[in-house]
Design a protein around this nucleic acid. Structure first.
Lengths: 343, 343
DNA sequence: CTGTTAGCGCTTTCAT
DNA sequence: ATGAAAGCGCTAACAG
């Protein structure tokens, strides 16, 4: 390494102990079980630690104790705004604790998921959060054998060991589609992104409702297996209109897409919501202030992250919990990219 | 811990060595310096490793070698889309290497920055990336003493030790403002977000140009010291118009804000770009497909992330480099939220 | 090319 | 309430 070496060899526990005239273990205790050390001594050592700028070596700690204080957070992709909310939730809960977070991105690849989970497990990670991964099935063996809490954010009804924060994408998508029907739209296109588990479930919810209504048509399904973007929304709407020029509404699998659809619809000279309805998904920040404001389905992703972290922390701290399944629910937020329901 | 214990004690290097009838160090070598072990033996051991599902213990490795294979990435906040691009760049470069990434969020707090950097340094982190932090000055001591590469993404002209990826926010903001003036707008408001270092510099660039033009007015400055959102864009435009109803253009410090300004301007019945010009910042994904498409300044954040990681990796791999300063530049992208320049 | 010895910095376990 | 001894799983340094 071409890099300048730190000038001072770093301070160790022993250095502090020697200076304090005690043995290493006492200093160690001050840090981890302060109540087991007498007032005076404790204070003296604490001062010394500050003075000497002693910082414990996590590697040594992890090796000796076989416990690690980092949580592993695995998500399928970093590109999506939805994941940002999720990560923010985790962050918020972990903040001001001594836990650290290691994020990894599996790029929607099952092999990579396995590799990463195996890696985390072998490092005595304090806990693992799996957000929106693909290989639920493939992972269950690993998860069962885990000796740390594993929290997964997955769709309702998917079987998996470990604690589950569930989101019901099928029901949410069905609700959105049904809403569009109630508003009187008939040719409702589905504008979608990545065909991961969640995407497939949303598609399924949409298809069920459309079939029941006798309005299903494959040509109404437009998606690209990639991260959703506003640009993609524009592109997919154009593509859909070519196949079915009579389309009078879209259910978009993400508000990003919906934003694109709105702009593209404006370019096409359509009047939203009278001629053309739009329903989004996720209630991203801009949804409420678009013109017109976007009707969308809100999934509490921040909360999902927050509670994932909370579960891990409680578990590690011994405030145990049985394996549990938490359903976060969803909410249809009716704004003005869809017509008022006929009275 | 209430959690089920892993059934098998985990396999160690020694286990593999014993089974192979060699000493531990040989197995260790197979993993780290395979060329130093004979073909046959190497293959035999590799098979065994696979068979026994041996995964090296990173903590032990880090402790023994005093090297850690994770990079620390410190950013001021996770909420901003700009950081997402940056993180994606890092991710892309680190992908398919054996390095791991540990992100931390300093919540725009200098104390927290110090704490985190100190922590990373004490853990023999392989490298550190500091993205858009506040305490450049406060950190320089720590950075100088670092024994690993430290890459900072900061504004041009800020003095700091370590390698720097520089962005010239003053010049970029000045260019944007000048463009609006050239288009013939006169009452140009500044719509801003977090007053961190970058924000202040952008403001500075704007102020300089407006002052030179004799058009500066404090009432044209509208900002909230918080993460930019589309909603904030709407709010700030309304606020600005109250103070200066004659505003005919805005320079927004983020495209998020610009999106909000566009919607709000539409609600006010303004005609963009004829009555009202908008210039954004960052060229986020939706900028090119808005209606009308957004004039904005592109800062290559993905590239900043990619190159940060690249520098660290090269440095660690010994393909050394002197401390360097890389200026990524910026680009004004003229679209249609600003009038055509008079010919 | 392979092995021996020592020890990274901390915590565990058992004593006092 | 404090300490001594041992060792976590691995790699550095030196031998052969």
């Amino acid at each position: 390494m071409p890099v300048r070496r730190g000038r001072s060899e770093k301070t160790t526990l022993l250095d502090v102990a020697t200076r304090a005239g005690v043995s290493a273990i006492t200093v160690s205790r001050v840090l981890r079980e302060p109540e087991k050390v007498s007032q005076d001594l404790r204070r003296r050592i604490l001062d010394l630690i500050e003075d000497m700028e002693y910082v414990p070596d996590q590697a040594a700690r992890a090796l000796a104790s076989r416990h690690n204080s980092t949580f592993g957070v695995l998500v399928a992709s970093l590109t999506n705004r939805a994941f940002l909310s999720f990560m923010q939730g985790i962050e918020e809960r972990v903040r001001d604790t001594s836990f650290r977070i290691q994020y990894a991105n599996t790029h929607n690849c099952i092999e990579e998921e396995k590799r990463q989970v195996r890696l985390l497990l072998s490092q005595n990670t304090a806990g693992i959060v799996l957000g929106g991964l693909e290989g639920i099935g493939a992972l269950s063996d690993l998860i069962e054998r885990a000796n740390c809490p594993v929290v997964q954010v997955v769709d309702v009804g998917l079987k998996t060991p470990g604690t589950v924060i569930a989101v019901d994408h099928i029901a949410a998508a069905a609700t959105a589609t049904r809403h569009l029907l109630k508003c009187g739209y008939r040719s409702i296109a589905l504008i979608g992104g990545a065909m991961d588990e969640r995407g497939r479930r949303r598609t399924q919810g949409y298809c069920q409702v459309m079939q029941e209504a006798g309005l299903f048509d494959e040509n109404l399904l437009q998606s690209e297996n990639a991260t959703t973007t506003t640009q993609m929304g524009c592109r997919l709407l154009r593509r859909a209109m070519k196949l079915r020029p009579d389309i009078d509404a879209t259910f978009c699998q993400n508000d990003d897409l919906a934003l694109g659809v709105l702009f593209e619809a404006q370019r096409m000279g359509k009047n939203v919501p009278d001629d053309f309805g739009i329903c989004g998904y996720n209630d991203l920040d801009f949804a409420s202030v678009m013109e017109p404001p976007l009707t969308t389905v809100r999934i509490p992703l921040f909360e999902a992250g927050y509670r994932s972290a909370d579960i891990m922390i409680r578990c590690v701290e011994g405030k145990a919990m049985e394996r549990q399944v938490i359903n976060l629910g969803f909410e249809l937020i009716e704004r003005r990219t869809t017509r008022r329901l006929p009275a």
